[in-house]
Nucleic acid binder design. Sequence first.
DNA 1: TATAAAAAAGATGTTTTTGTCCGAAATGTG
DNA 2: CACATTTCGGACAAAAACATCTTTTTTATA
Lengths: 140, 140
Amino acid sequence: MLTTSTKYAIKAVLFLALHSDENDKLMVKDFFEAINVPKEYLAKILQELSKKGVVSSSRGPKGGFYLSSKNKKLPLISIVEAIEGRHRLQSCVLSINECDNDNPCVLHDLVGNAKTIFLKNFEETTVERLIESIKEGKVL
Amino acid sequence: MLTTSTKYAIKAVLFLALHSDENDKLMVKDFFEAINVPKEYLAKILQELSKKGVVSSSRGPKGGFYLSSKNKKLPLISIVEAIEGRHRLQSCVLSINECDNDNPCVLHDLVGNAKTIFLKNFEETTVERLIESIKEGKVL
DNA sequence: TATAAAAAAGATGTTTTTGTCCGAAATGTG
DNA sequence: CACATTTCGGACAAAAACATCTTTTTTATA
């Protein structure tokens, strides 16, 4: 459903949303254990997310990663897109190029529903919104 | 959503359902091009499906692969299970072990719906049923 | 302005998935 | 029974995903 890298990315973003802001940045070494992601790999992923504008970062002493309030308003889908690109999520289940609503493959309708719901949720739910869930007891 | 191998498997099963039966078996070389799957890899996948009872096969001259009427009655999910096992489809989106309905992770509810619908469709739709769709114009 | 701290960038290593190849076992047919 | 044909099974190869390591660049602050 989501690649390992994307899962790591989501965990990282949510953790940052909860525990950082412009004045309290987090370094990789400060939280890789908390979210159970290999340290060096997390660094790579954050780099990518930063480049794509999904998280914020600053170098040097007192530097680190954090979520700006703008970052927090992004929908979940932007994390997925930053890591694995948009294509993967919306391409045909059977990877048939010509498949679309007008010329659906055998599984198109069968899977369409689930995929539509999934995408819709990821497009409509912001990081900010998820943080509420966490505060209401959902586990990260 | 589904691995490449599983997609190949589904295509192969559907093709066999359409073009083979006990008296007209198909050899790998007869249809790997039609479904656009690497020949040797398709052979491997069919072997696996055969071992798991999802497709039927016989060796030697006049041999090949086919779907028995029993095979055709199997739900789609059994193809997925044969290739990638059941676990992958139903495990937590964030791969959090403790995640379940009583102790949901942040994404559990968000994704739950889509996943439930997806699984339900794959459990309830048989190969036989899909063949009807194809005859009604859906592309394979 | 020198220093140390941090992310950025790039090179390298490992594992899993995908894909290929070849010999062994089975089986219908002359 | 001999033979050709086909799947079966295992070994091997290539590519992608996952992970680590090292060097460079930026920057706060002493």
